[in-house]
């Protein structure tokens, strides 16, 4: 059983929380649950209601649609957060590629913590805005290169 401190030590390296202050992260850590999946176990299926975000401590998970791999996520990475943040059903299937040890936050509890601690929501918004900026910059650069090539 991990302590809150140990969970924070792990969560601070998850990109979703890269802007989150440690004290806020402790609040998030306190609502996480430790979960384990055996190799080959299906964690969730396509179109399942989104119920949680997962943070992989050890192991690897395959995110796929039928036989087509979308992503492989492993140590210190998260999955399922996009559906939770957009409140949509799962659009991929998640299967453990090997034995997986992870932390799980149910979306209801996650939103409760966000609502009670607006600064955590601000931290996540900052992260998402940063990602959008990078995407915009990349697409601008792509356009510049495309025009040059043309």
């Amino acid at each position: 059983m991990l302590t809150v401190l140990e969970k924070v030590m792990f969560l601070r390296h998850i990109p979703l929380f890269s802007n989150t202050r440690m004290e806020n992260l402790a609040r998030v850590a306190s609502i996480t649950q430790e979960v384990e999946f055996r190799k080959g176990e299906v964690i969730f299926r396509n179109n399942d209601p989104c119920d949680a975000i997962y943070f992989i401590r050890h192991g690897a998970v395959r995110l796929h649609r039928d036989d087509v791999d979308i992503f492989i996520v492993s140590d210190n990475e998260s999955f399922g957060e996009m559906e939770v943040l957009s409140n949509e059903p799962r659009f991929v299937m998640a299967t453990a590629l090997e034995d997986v040890s992870a932390l799980k936050i149910s979306n209801e509890e996650f939103f409760d913590v966000l609502a009670d601690n607006i600064s955590i929501a601000q931290d996540i918004l900052r992260l998402l805005v940063g990602r959008i900026k990078v995407l915009m910059e990349n697409s601008r650069m792509s356009l510049v290169f495309w025009l040059k090539d043309d």
Binding site: L5, M9, R21, M22, E23
Partner: peptide, 17 residues
Amino acid sequence: PRRLDLLTTSVLERQDR
């Protein structure tokens, strides 16, 4: 990237606030 230990980061965050 967070390279500092937990206490140092937490104290620096308190200072930031």
